[in-house]
Design a protein around this nucleic acid. Structure first.
Length: 575
RNA sequence: CGGGGUGUAGCGCAGCCUGGUAGCGUAACUCGUUUGGGACGAGGAGGUCGGAGGUUCAAAUCCUCUCACCCCGACCA
């Protein structure tokens, strides 16, 4: 592409709404325009990146015999009513009626559509497994779109679906997809982690699910991992253990004065003990099947509650912190809440890290009083419920107790799930097995956020000057700038450009005649991996062109004859 | 949806408190001079001040309503 013919404009200033590097740089470098909240236009260079990402995905999925299809973006409401998600997802889905009053929606995902296709075609176990995918636009009316492409309402997603006769087959399909995903992100040149994840509403709790996380400072997810083993999990899911805590056991419970000390830090400082010698008492209200119940959640004083774990443990539809007035009604004093002698309307849950036979400082349920020497196994009337509810922390150990964990941030770009028979059952998709018996096949579903991956690649790879694209997904491989204005040098540059193109090198030729500074700034901002400069003055002296690598700044001087092979070598090194 | 904020030229901002000629930087345009890290000079162009209503002789500025967008939370590729 010749820049003199391109529709491209960079900017010196960043639109104020852009807060994170990927959004700022995509706007500044003229790759993206905003159309509305969470809705963007992909300009030519962005589209090239998107297409490269898509093609890598296609190649890897085709290898595992997944077949590409395209499902309609607008789907009939009927399908969603069949699966029961029409009402469930009404906040996320844009729903509307056609002129005849029939319900329609913009697809936020396509389990229903694909199951509908499947049940119309597949009737026999001999046709299984089936693997289908599509890459197209999704619309989710997110509660709060933000961070540019990171959480748009309209976005491009690859969604794949597999159908299997039994669990064994589903596991095999899952494993293939896991491998394909690993290959996809490897080929894109991204630093990523594969982590155990929480299934959310998507699957049953025992089904496998993993997330693919691009490692980046601006990531919204926390990844718990160990360097000495292959353990990695999203913090929502991670179960790790604390080590080297020494507890004591007091012989009796005594009340102590703690005037105006409402926080654990205050009380423990006052008593000169470590915070884990106390119990943190949190009151939560869960709603399950429209029934409300209240829970007192106990954690070691320096631990934090993981709400996802609590929600899963309680099998709750919603979970909120209990309102102040309800806390009062339950006979609790905020700031001095504790598990001793409290209301029978409260369900008490202990975190796994608590040693039930040791003594702790707890709130006394009296103003300005705490209790010392509370031992759960001794001082609780009823049997004690205990489960893992805390957030993992750096310095914890994996379950086996051998590997210390750390935490880093990631951006979720891919997620693979085992769905089981949820949709095939709801939508009566059945095949005959080898006994002639009707069975509901098991499903897996697998997503990659294409546009989010583009943003994540920038989050991971940029500097003060601009973006730094990995070779495999760069809009072009080479930025070729010409400094000079004589007719001879222009002719030479044009010939070089033509020869690069005919050698199948993706080159962006800056023939706009700008000053060198402006060209270099644009080049660094756009972040193509390789920059070639033909400078009239230098070339007359030395007959050499300059090759500079965006990522490391390395410079090579090459002759016109050696240029193409050197560039090809550099490209192949990075692919 | 709750809390906070912002809307003035393509982009970034000032002006608003204390009402009275619509301003700066940058980009874009023309002419000339420039070519290895966002060149310089000169000239011109660009605005329903988010929208509606109100107060006033007079509103970007004060009042009311409204819309859009951004940030913090629940959601997710």
């Amino acid at each position: 592409m010749r820049l003199s013919k391109a529709c491209w404009q960079t900017y010196k200033e960043i639109p104020k709404e852009a807060e994170i590097p990927s959004h700022q740089l995509l706007m500044k470098a003229g790759l993206l325009h905003k159309s509305g909240s969470g809705i963007y236009q992909y300009l030519p260079f962005a589209l090239r990146v998107i297409q490269k990402i898509e093609n890598i995905i296609r190649e890897e999925l085709n290898k595992i015999y997944s077949q590409e299809i395209t499902m309609s973006m607008v789907t009939p409401g009927e399908l969603w009513k069949e699966s029961g998600r029409w009402d469930l997802m009404e906040n996320l889905m844009v729903q509307f009626e056609d002129r005849g009053g029939k319900d329609l929606c913009l697809s936020p995902t396509n389990e229903e559509s694909v199951t509908d296709i499947f049940r119309k075609i597949v009737k026999s176990y001999k046709q299984l497994p089936v693997s289908l995918y599509q890459i197209n636009t999704k619309f989710r009316d997110e509660i709060r779109p933000r961070f540019g492409l990171m959480r748009g309402r309209e976005f491009i997603m690859k969604d794949a679906y597999t159908f299997h006769l039994n669990k064994e087959c589903m596991d095999k399909g899952y494993e293939e997809m896991y491998q394909a995903y690993s290959n996809i992100f490897k080929r894109m040149g991204l630093d990523f982690a594969i982590v155990e994840a929480d299934a959310g509403n998507m699957g049953s709790t025992d089904s496998k699910t993993h997330e693919f996380q691009v490692i980046a400072e601006t990531g919204e997810d926390l990844i718990v991992y160990s360097e000495s083993s292959d353990y990695a999990a999203n913090i929502e899911k991670a179960e790790t253990i604390r080590k080297n805590l020494s507890f004591s056991k007091d012989s009796e419970v005594t009340e102590i004065d703690t005037p105006k000390m409402k926080s654990i830090a205050d009380v423990c400082n006052h008593l000169k003990v470590d915070q884990y010698q106390s119990l943190k008492s949190l009151v939560y209200t869960s709603i399950t099947d429209a029934k409300e119940s209240h829970h007192l959640v106990l954690l070691l004083g320096d631990d934090e509650l993981n709400e996802v774990k609590l929600k899963n443990y309680l099998n709750a539809t919603y979970l909120v912190m209990t309102k102040d007035e309800t806390i009062k009604d339950l006979g609790l004093i905020k700031g001095f809440i504790g598990p001793h002698n409290c209301s029978e309307n409260l369900n008490i849950v202990y975190d796994q890290a608590i040693d039930l036979d040791s003594s702790y400082i707890i709130g006394a349920n009296k103003v300005d009083k705490h209790l010392k020497g509370f031992v759960p196994s001794r001082n609780c009337k009823d049997s004690v419920n205990q489960t893992d509810l805390r957030n993992s922390k750096p310095g914890d150990y994996t379950q086996c107790g051998e590997h210390e964990v750390k935490i880093k941030k990631g951006i979720e770009v891919g997620h693979i799930f085992q769905l089981g028979d949820k949709y095939t059952k709801a939508m009566s998709a059945q095949v005959l097995d080898n006994n002639g018996k009707k069975v509901n096949p098991l499903m897996g579903c697998y997503g990659i956020g294409v546009t989010r991956t583009m943003a994540a690649a920038i989050e991971q790879n940029h500097d003060e000057q601009g973006m730094i694209w990995p070779m495999a997904i760069a809009p072009y491989q080479v930025y070729f700038s010409l400094i000079g204005k004589s007719e001879e040098i222009k002719k030479l540059a044009s010939d070089i450009y033509d020869s690069l193109v005919s050698d199948k090198i993706e080159v962006l030729f800056d023939d706009r005649g700008l000053g060198p500074g402006a060209m270099f700034k644009d080049s660094d901002l756009l972040g193509l991996p390789i920059r070639i400069t033909l400078g009239e003055r230098d070339y007359k002296e030395s007959n050499l062109l300059e090759i500079k690598l965006r990522k490391c700044g390395t410079v090579h001087k090459v002759s016109r004859e050696g240029l193409n092979s050197k560039v090809k070598e550099l490209i192949n090194n990075e692919l």
